[in-house]
């Protein structure tokens, strides 16, 4: 038997490719967000409403990740924005997106015509956590019906997040849920995690999310001017 050293880390290999994706986004002046949640938390509905509210101000694009079907991509395609569907059936049914899948999806989008790109990750709070896709910010969508303890149960994904969207707040009167306990649990895992409470259905709190997005986009543009504005 002969021993061959390999010394390759799968996550590092992913990180390298994610860095490449990030450079592509930066070169094309795109703000990219990775949306993660459990199945049914409302990512696609949040995106639909976001396109309705922001679609005239910014040129938006979406990469949709699912294990099977292109139902979500169809829902978004009616807004006449670029939507690329990744179905991981062809990648062995993987439960998360990785940087390589994103890189391939980017070939199908005219990046010169996008300002903000949303990546809708596969509904899952475990596996997507450690896979950097090259995004600038990670957003978790958590719906009220999932309970207060999700940050404690899925700490890895919450620890790495930049924003928590608490969705379906219109259901609060019907649930025995302690919103402040949910916030405390999230803060324990990630003390600096900002959160926005909203309902994609009634649009309550939705303007806070739109403001957050606008702020992120502006911050990114300013950084760009600061770094390349010198004569």
């Amino acid at each position: 038997m002969k021993k061959i050293t390999v010394l390759t880390d799968l996550l590092e290999a992913n990180d390298v490719m994610a860095q490449e994706n990030r450079r592509i986004f930066d070169r094309n002046r795109i703000l990219t967000l990775n949306l993660m949640s459990s199945p049914g938390a409302g990512k696609t509905t949040v995106l639909e409403k976001t396109v309705e509210k922001l679609g005239k101000k910014y040129r938006l694009g979406v990469i949709e990740g699912d294990v099977a079907t292109s139902n979500d991509a169809k829902r978004l395609a009616k807004y006449k924005i670029p939507v690329v569907q990744i179905t991981t059936e062809t990648f062995g049914g993987a439960c998360h997106l990785d940087a390589n899948m994103i890189k391939k999806a980017l070939e199908k989008i005219d990046l010169t015509k996008v300002d903000i790109l949303f990546i809708e990750n596969i509904g899952n709070l475990i596996c997507p956590a450690e896979f950097d896709l090259g995004e600038h910010k990670k957003v978790i969508v958590l719906s009220l019906t999932e309970g207060e303890d999700k940050p404690s149960k899925y700490p890895v994904v919450f620890r790495n997040a930049d924003l928590l969207l608490v969705n379906k707040v219109d259901l609060l009167p019907f649930l025995d849920l302690d919103l402040s306990l949910l916030s405390r649990n999230a803060k324990k895992i990630n003390p600096r995690l900002p959160s926005i409470k909203l309902s994609a259905k009634t649009e309550e709190g939705f303007s806070d999310w739109i403001n957050w997005l606008t702020k992120q986009y502006n911050a990114k543009s300013k950084k760009r001017i600061a770094s390349c504005g010198r004569p």
Partner: peptide, 20 residues
């Protein structure tokens, strides 16, 4: 404290293989 700097635990590392 929850302010931790994580050093190890993220590995998905292929160290070596043995072949015939």
């Amino acid at each position: 404290s929850f302010r931790l700097e994580i050093k190890t635990g993220r590995e998905l590392f292929i160290e070596s293989i043995e072949i015939k």
